[in-house]
Simulated scan of single mutants.
Amino acid sequence: MKKTKILIATAIVCIATFVAIAADHIDAPAVTGGTSDITDFYAFSGEDNSNIAFVANVQGLLLPGDTGSASFDENVLIEINIDTDEDAVQDLVIQAIPRDGRMYFFGPYATNSTDLSSSIGTTSSIQGVVDITQYGENAITATANNMTFFAGPRDDPFFFDFDQFNSILDPDNSASSFNDPGIDKFAGTNVLSVVVEVPKSMIGGSGNINTWVETKRKQ
């Protein structure tokens, strides 16, 4: 197996049985404005209920068409961890790494590693590749080994009244309620998304899992 040493840059622990959401959005000082910054992570049943879709978003608050700076970093590995037996230790991983305009996927495959470093499983028997969708293009997807893949910019719908949240935290502000309906605070901004849809049979069968995502930077 070819091994590439990767060190952890940031991680969001996210908890899922079918649906999970966690958000960072440049809150972590160590990765603010960096290419390893995780914004959101989702896991949910696919349109085909026998599948689970994983969505990992990085690099939030991107302006549409900002092709000069908004691109996946070839030195950053996106790693989806899957715990199938509820012991809070990953049993399987799905890895995604960009190269020359394409996103390469490895796994899900079994791992015993709980270290803050990873090796890319380039000899994994289950893997796929998809062209990275560019701004203005229709979404490009690819299917291999009963899995479906996507990578590229997407709109960031963040329906949270962030201004009111900050106001409530201000002891000198008398406001006490959020706007209803909610406000898409990040309207007009994008994230870079990595999406992989996987049959439940590949990750324990039932789909009842815990899952979290990490980004790891090449050493």
Score class of each variant (00 low, 15 high):
17 T>Y: 05
111 T>D: 04
91 D>M: 02
110 A>Y: 00
49 N>A: 15
102 R>H: 15
11 A>C: 01
18 F>N: 03
33 G>Q: 00
83 D>T: 01
71 S>M: 12
15 I>G: 14
93 V>N: 01
15 I>M: 10
86 E>L: 09
55 V>E: 07
36 S>H: 13
84 T>I: 04
20 A>T: 15
82 I>N: 05
104 Y>D: 09
51 N>Y: 08
51 N>W: 04
122 T>L: 08
86 E>C: 06
111 T>R: 03
64 P>S: 06
85 D>R: 06
93 V>G: 03
119 S>R: 02
34 G>W: 07
90 Q>R: 08
9 A>K: 13
23 A>P: 10
59 Q>K: 11
20 A>D: 14
19 V>G: 14
84 T>C: 04
75 N>G: 14
16 A>P: 00
65 G>Q: 08
53 A>V: 14
27 D>H: 13
114 T>V: 08
28 A>S: 07
77 L>W: 04
95 Q>E: 06
115 D>A: 13
121 G>M: 00
48 D>N: 10
74 E>V: 14
10 T>N: 09
121 G>N: 05
46 G>R: 05
87 D>S: 02
87 D>V: 03
95 Q>M: 04
10 T>G: 10
34 G>Y: 08
99 R>F: 15
41 F>C: 12
105 F>G: 02
71 S>Q: 06
10 T>S: 05
46 G>A: 15
101 G>V: 14
37 D>E: 13
119 S>Q: 01
28 A>N: 10
61 L>S: 15
25 H>T: 11
14 C>W: 06
97 I>C: 14
120 I>K: 11
88 A>D: 13
35 T>S: 01
79 E>Y: 03
60 G>P: 09
20 A>Y: 11
103 M>D: 14
45 S>R: 15
28 A>Y: 03
112 N>E: 01
35 T>I: 10
105 F>W: 03
86 E>S: 12
22 A>L: 05
73 D>F: 14
67 T>R: 13
12 I>M: 02
97 I>F: 06
40 D>A: 08
119 S>A: 10
16 A>K: 01
79 E>W: 05
15 I>K: 12
112 N>A: 10
105 F>A: 06
95 Q>A: 00
104 Y>A: 05
78 I>G: 00
111 T>L: 02
105 F>V: 02
65 G>Y: 12
95 Q>K: 07
52 I>D: 01
79 E>T: 00
39 T>S: 06
52 I>V: 09
32 T>W: 07
